[in-house]
């Protein structure tokens, strides 16, 4: 039986009727049309569904949407400001950290949390931080470079 859940997504409050089994990812993609978060493994292993839930990176495929009642969600669609890419998104473009692009929204959301507290990050910390996100194209170095560029230049 469907239940009503209220979640704030990228600043807008939504009231969604969801089945108990529905994941946050399903609601974001299928109910709200936000296809930035991707369905990869659907089992908490690849990271391309990563979103911020109350500011913390989570696998949205593993979050039952009814448990997210009253939470604030940020997807990659919520990062651009006035139609301009934010500094992290721009850094991914400039560093060539995007190839097929499938992992990119999740990578960027994970990196957003890594960069959130404003502390310096060494490359090891960045690599450790994105360990829950798989990329099969870039070999990771350019992704690390992109995150490091933002960390250094802020």
């Amino acid at each position: 039986m469907k239940q009503i859940v209220n979640i704030e997504v990228n600043g807008d409050v939504h009231e969604v009727a969801a089945e108990p089994r529905d994941s946050l990812l399903e609601v974001l993609r299928d109910h709200l049309g936000l296809v930035g978060p991707k369905r990869g493994c659907d089992g908490g292993g690849c990271g391309c569904c990563t979103v911020l839930l109350d500011g913390r990176a989570v696998y949205s495929c593993m979050v039952y949407v009814l448990s997210a009642e009253g939470s604030a969600v940020t997807t990659v669609e919520g990062l651009a400001e006035d139609g301009q890419l934010n500094p992290l998104q721009s850094a991914f473009v400039e560093a060539g950290a995007v190839q097929c692009g499938y992992c990119t929204p999740g990578m960027i959301m994970t990196a957003t949390e890594l960069l959130a507290d404003g502390e310096d990050l060494d490359d090891d910390e960045i690599r450790h931080g994105i360990a829950g996100n798989l990329c099969r194209c870039t070999g990771y170095q350019k992704i690390v470079d992109a995150v490091q560029n933002v960390a250094r230049n802020r």
Binding site: G44, G47, L53, V58, Y59, T110, E113, A131
Partner: peptide
């Protein structure tokens, strides 16, 4: 620390 960030957060 061995848990991936996204699992650790949930």
């Amino acid at each position: 620390r061995h848990l991936p960030l996204q699992v650790r957060n949930a």
